[in-house]
């Protein structure tokens, strides 16, 4: 028995403590969401009662359904498109040798290090003009948000993908060239399927990052119906911290569904891709 504790038991103990730390706040969110009183002061760690009151309020009194749809659409399209753009660029950086390749790679990293949000003023002025000219791509629209987020498509992710392409033997491309394949064929039919795990991981991270983005969205989306979850939910507890807490937690739980869902769905790739992208040695 002591042998078991020394060899295996303590590992479970650490695991359980880790779980306690991880799940404690989540349990609190859950309890607060089903707390019939719905205030912060009456919320406890262990649920004291159960009701769907907060969820009903969420859908009845706020535009939560719109926020949810907006977030999923914007984050989904932006993540998918930015992964694709990044995959294209990473191919050029990994497989092609051209003038400015090193400088290009370095500047991708450097641009990302500038505190982006300050550019909000410039971006705001720019989109004021865009709203006048092409209202479909201006403030309070999906497309405006998506285009803006695509500006960050090339960046750290491009480096990560390039690293992954580098692990795929060049002989593969070369033999394909001998067989008469063109470069788009090599890219789409040979390399892309092989980097699927890293595509899944970067796509997921981009998705989570976009859903979480608050600063720029807060400036851009002012119509209640066009807000994203981050902006909308923040508005719920910005003023009335105590009274809206239950409704806010209900919203948080529902917000978690797409991210946790995608996470679980891609679980297989994540462990494979994240650790492979990071190590595989």
């Amino acid at each position: 028995m002591t042998r078991w504790i020394k060899q295996v038991g303590w590992r479970h103990l650490v695991g359980l403590l880790g779980l306690g730390f991880a799940l404690g706040p989540l349990l609190f969110v859950f309890s607060a969401a089903i707390n019939p009183q719905g205030t912060l002061s009456s919320s406890t760690l262990i649920p004291t009662g159960a009701s769907a009151e907060n969820f009903v309020k969420l859908f009845r009194d706020t535009n939560f359904a719109y926020w949810f749809l907006n977030s999923v659409m914007i984050a989904g399209v932006a993540a998918a498109a930015s992964v694709f753009l990044s995959a294209l660029a990473a191919y050029a950086f990994s497989r092609r040798r051209f003038k400015g390749r090193r400088i290009g790679l370095m500047s991708l990293l450097l641009i990302q290090m500038f505190p982006q949000f300050l550019a909000v003023v410039a971006i705001f002025l720019m989109f004021s003009t865009i709203t006048d000219l092409w209202p479909a791509f201006g403030f309070n629209t999906w497309w405006g948000m998506i285009l803006l987020y695509l500006g960050g498509a090339l960046g750290v992710n491009t480096w990560l993908m390039k690293g992954f392409y580098d692990t795929i033997p060049k002989e593969l491309d070369e033999s394909a060239v001998v067989d008469g394949a063109s470069h788009p064929q090599i890219f789409f039919k040979i390399l892309l399927p092989l980097v699927a795990p890293i595509l899944a991981v970067t796509g997921l991270l981009a998705f989570i990052g976009t859903i979480n983005e608050f600063l720029i969205a807060n400036v851009f989306l002012t119509d209640s119906e066009s807000k994203t979850l981050a902006v909308g939910l923040y508005g719920l507890v910005a003023g009335e911290r105590d009274t809206n807490f239950g409704v806010f937690c209900a919203g948080t739980l529902l917000t978690a569904i797409p991210t946790v869902g995608v996470f679980m769905y891609l679980q297989r790739y994540i462990v494979e891709g994240l650790s492979a992208g990071a190590v595989k040695g």
Binding site: V156, L160, K189, P193, A206, A278, V279
Partner: peptide, 23 residues
């Protein structure tokens, strides 16, 4: 857009396994 993951992992990826399926 911000992600926590990143950084060049290029050198840490020795070319070992052959690709699982070669179309």
């Amino acid at each position: 857009m911000t992600t926590k993951l990143g950084g060049p992992a290029r050198r840490a990826l020795p070319v070992t396994e052959p690709a699982p399926s070669e179309p």
